[in-house]
Computed example of a mutant assay.
Amino acid sequence: MGMSLLGTPAAVAAPLPTAPCGDGGVTAGDTELAVTLNGLLTMKMRGYLDGYRVSCARTVVAAVRARGLPREAAVVAITTAIVETGVRNINREVDHDSLGVFQQRATWGSPAQRLDVAWATSAFLDKMLRKYPDGSWRTAVVGDVCQRVQVSKYPERYQPQAADGQMIVSALWPADGVPRAQVIARAKTWKPATAQRVPYSQTKQYGGYRADGSGYVSMTLGLAKPGPITTVLATGAHTRPIKMTELLQGDLVIDPVGGNTARQVVVFDRWADAKRTSYWAYQQRSGYGTDHRVVKHGLTTGTQFRAYRPLTVR
């Protein structure tokens, strides 16, 4: 399975010929997400993601979702793609007769099939399900599942990439729809503006979520634990920009600029006055903890706060 493509970061960046990964091509959101993830990944792909590779990962994740399988299956597939090709749809037989994002041999299918990322992903999943009947793959080690499907000469290379595979999938896998009232109900569970409020922390967790601003907001939206950071919340993976005048309960106001101590995100609750000069918001606030207070974020001249609508809120 594409052994010459494994190994060093230099191999990840090698200028091999590739085919598009999906009908939509590379979107602006793909490119933006690549920039964000490059600073978060820790292993082989760190610094090497671009819009094209994200478009390939997005197509793989969509194929898993189309099969009705859980996100853990996407983690196995993306982890495999990281090792095999650096998440590229390679369309030249570099290693024997291997092709595609998973470097599948000719025995898997025709060249056209193997270069169809959705088809290749489905074929990968078919084999995974055959090797692990009755959902047993879900309790197995990710790297072991990858190896059982791929039968690689280098089985030890998969598991070290699993955490980055999880991070990529978390950024691309939308959460289930959440009613706006439920977002607010969840916000209240951290006891905002009371003596029982959750203390702010960028290193500790509460209920599996980071006890910082983005962790708190991720909890209110029901996103995967421990929650994406603020810069990721502001990407097309989770939100779309809207005007401040369009804010509804459960929408977000985000300042994604600067270091981790400067970035902020709040959950919009309601306007505080008829002229809409301020509003009530829920926030996990540095130096205080969970709060519910009146703010003007995004309403003043020169502000870096912008309004965003979560993709999964209904």
Rank of each mutant, 00 (worst) to 15 (best):
Met3Arg: 07
Ser4Cys: 12
Leu6Trp: 11
Thr8Gln: 07
Pro9Lys: 03
Ala11Gln: 07
Ala14Arg: 08
Cys21Thr: 10
Gly22Leu: 09
Gly25Glu: 12
Val26Thr: 15
Asp30Gln: 06
Glu32Arg: 11
Leu37Asp: 02
Leu40Ala: 11
Leu41Lys: 02
Met43Tyr: 06
Lys44Met: 03
Arg46His: 09
Leu49Asn: 00
Arg53Thr: 08
Cys56Ser: 02
Thr59Lys: 05
Val60Trp: 00
Arg67Met: 04
Leu69Asp: 05
Arg71Cys: 07
Ala74Gln: 09
Val75Leu: 01
Ile78Pro: 02
Thr79His: 05
Ile82Phe: 02
Val83Phe: 01
Arg88Asn: 08
Asn89Ser: 06
Ile90Tyr: 02
Asn91His: 06
Arg92Trp: 07
Arg92Tyr: 05
Val94Phe: 09
Asp97Cys: 11
Gly100Trp: 01
Gly109Ala: 14
Gly109Arg: 13
Ser110Trp: 12
Thr121Leu: 13
Ala123Leu: 12
Phe124Tyr: 14
Met128Gly: 06
Met128Trp: 08
Leu129Glu: 14
Leu129Cys: 09
Lys131Met: 15
Asp134Ala: 15
Gly135Lys: 07
Ser136Leu: 06
Ser136Thr: 15
Trp137Met: 02
Ala140Asp: 10
Val141Trp: 00
Val142Gln: 03
Gly143Tyr: 08
Gly143Ile: 08
Cys146Gly: 01
Arg148Gly: 15
Arg148Tyr: 02
Val149Pro: 00
Val151His: 03
Lys153Pro: 00
Lys153Ile: 12
Tyr154Ile: 09
Glu156Asp: 12
Gln161Arg: 00
Asp164Glu: 02
Met167Gln: 15
Trp173Arg: 02
Trp173Pro: 15
Trp173Ile: 14
Pro174Tyr: 05
Arg180His: 11
Ala181Phe: 01
Ala185Asn: 02
Ala185Cys: 03
Ala187His: 10
Lys188Met: 15
Lys191Ile: 01
Gln196Tyr: 13
Gln196Val: 10
Gln196Asn: 15
Pro199Lys: 04
Gln205Cys: 03
Tyr206His: 14
Gly208Ile: 05
Arg210Leu: 13
Arg210Trp: 13
Ala211Arg: 01
Ala211Ile: 06
Gly213Asp: 12
Tyr216Pro: 13
Val217Lys: 02
Thr220Gly: 02
Thr220Glu: 00
Pro226Trp: 05
Ile229Met: 06
Thr230Ala: 10
Thr230Val: 14
Val232Met: 06
Thr235Trp: 07
Gly236Asn: 07
Pro241His: 02
Pro241Ala: 08
Ile242Ser: 07
Thr245Ala: 14
Asp251Ile: 15
Asp251Ala: 12
Leu252Met: 10
Asp255Lys: 11
Pro256Asn: 11
Val257Lys: 06
Gly258Leu: 09
Asn260Gln: 08
Arg263Met: 08
Arg263Asn: 00
Val265Pro: 03
Val267Ile: 15
Phe268Asn: 07
Asp269Cys: 04
Asp269Val: 07
Trp271Gly: 05
Arg276Cys: 03
Arg276Gln: 06
Trp280Met: 13
Ala281Cys: 09
Tyr282Trp: 13
Gln283Leu: 05
Arg285Trp: 06
Gly287Ile: 14
Thr290Phe: 14
His297Leu: 15
Gly298Gln: 10
Thr300Ile: 12
Thr301Asp: 13
Gly302Pro: 13
Thr303Ile: 13
Gln304Pro: 04
Gln304Val: 12
Arg306Tyr: 10
Leu311His: 11
Thr312Pro: 03
Arg314Tyr: 09
